[in-house]
């Protein structure tokens, strides 16, 4: 198992030339590899700035924006369309109930006043009690206040109903499960209609070619690193033949031979990338303008805006209805008290009338 320990020993001149040659080779390799890496960074930077390939990837995505999902959940939690539908149906009945109480109360006053007037006409000054008309003045004033309030409530009901009619469709949509909601929104990404369109196919193809260029680069880099470069024999021969070593000439010639093809391929690779990046930028320009101007995009915006305002209107309508229902219920209590007052005074007047009539007949 003999190993010659002095195998590598060479003349000093050769040793010096070898070290210079190796640093030349290192510079060349570093420069080539550096260019490849730099090109890859540039390519990644440009694609990132164009949001590629992400913009192309979510073409098939049709997701509902998070904010809309939250609004949908909120509306469903509050009972959805059904709960406000029911309340709106109740409004006319609540109104009618209050109207009837008020009308009955005023009718009682009217009837009693009529009999009082008839008796006054019949007995003239002998019918000397206060006329009902005078007595009922404050009650009638109160009655007209109630009528005004009810007229205003009718207008309020109308406003709520109109608001409901305007938004009920969108509110219903908002209450749908996410999958239906998603399907009902015109392609969440306007480019969706661009899917399969020329510009998208071209852009995809260009990105694939770019990927290939990048992959080639990796292979190229490995090959460059793998190149063997040993000047020992050349330098030894030169020294033996000429007595001197023209390191630079010998090294550059050898580097050209060994790395010429790689250098050429690096250049081609970089040119190929430059061309492709220019093409990608033009295609992306077209893609972006198409995306902007696409009628679908506008449609999507419109629907999303409507969905958002549907949520806001739902909240408003719910509070309007709560207020309206409370209004009618509170008013009913007040009107029932008013009705009691009217029936009490009418009852008192009737009792008084009967006594007066008895007196007159006896006299």
């Amino acid at each position: 198992k003999f190993t010659d320990l002095f195998e590598k020993m060479v003349p000093m001149q050769v040793q010096q030339s070898l070290s210079i040659a190796s640093s030349r080779k290192a510079d060349l390799v570093n420069r080539l590899v550096g260019k490849l890496r730099e090109a890859t960074n540039l390519c990644n930077g440009v694609l990132a700035s164009l949001n590629l390939p992400a913009a192309l990837e979510d073409l098939s995505g049709d997701s509902v924006p998070q904010s809309i999902l939250e609004k949908s959940r909120a509306v469903v939690q509050q009972g959805g369309l059904h709960s406000i539908e029911q309340l709106i149906k109740d409004l006319p009945e609540l109104l009618q109930r209050n109207r009837e109480i008020l009308d009955e109360s005023l009718k009682m006053l009217d009837d009693e006043e009529t009999t009082d007037n008839e008796l006054r006409a019949k007995f003239s000054q002998r019918w000397n009690r206060t006329p009902s008309g005078d007595l009922y003045k404050p009650l009638r004033a109160e009655g007209s206040n109630f009528r005004n309030v009810l007229d205003k409530a009718v207008q309020a009901d109308q406003v709520v109903r109109e608001r409901y009619n305007t938004h009920c469709e969108m509110i219903a949509l908002l209450c749908k499960p996410e999958s239906e909601l998603c399907a009902a929104i015109p392609s969440a990404n306007p480019a969706n209609t661009l899917q399969g369109s020329e510009v998208v196919n071209v852009l995809k193809a260009q990105l694939q070619q770019l990927d290939e260029v990048k992959r080639n680069r990796e292979v190229l880099e490995e090959e460059i690193k793998a190149v063997t470069f040993d000047m020992t024999t050349k330098f030894l021969t030169a020294l033996a033949q000429d007595g001197a070593i023209n390191e630079e000439a010998l090294s550059t010639t050898e580097l050209d031979t060994r790395y010429g093809a790689h250098t050429q391929r690096v250049k081609q690779n970089l040119c190929a990338q430059d061309d492709l990046l220019a093409q990608v930028q033009t295609s992306h320009q077209e893609f972006a303008t198409l995306k902007q101007s696409n009628a679908e995009a506008n449609n999507r915006e419109e629907v999303l805006k409507k969905l958002a305002s549907a949520h806001d209107s739902y909240v408003e309508i719910s509070s309007n209805l709560k207020e309206g229902t409370k209004f009618y219920n509170d008013l009913t209590e007040i009107l029932l008290r008013f009705q009691n007052k009217c029936s009490d005074i009418v009852f008192a007047r009737k009792t008084e009338r009967d006594e007066l009539l008895k007196e007159l007949q006896q006299s």
Binding site: P138, E142, N145, F146, N148, V149, K152, A153, A156, V159, V160, N320, E323, G324, F327, D330, L331, I334, R337, K341, I345
Partner: peptide, 16 residues
């Protein structure tokens, strides 16, 4: 608010 207030209607006027 949308509906009229009932505050001034709640107070019962005293019959003289």
């Amino acid at each position: 608010s949308l509906y009229p207030s009932l505050e001034d209607l709640k107070v019962d006027k005293v019959m003289r």
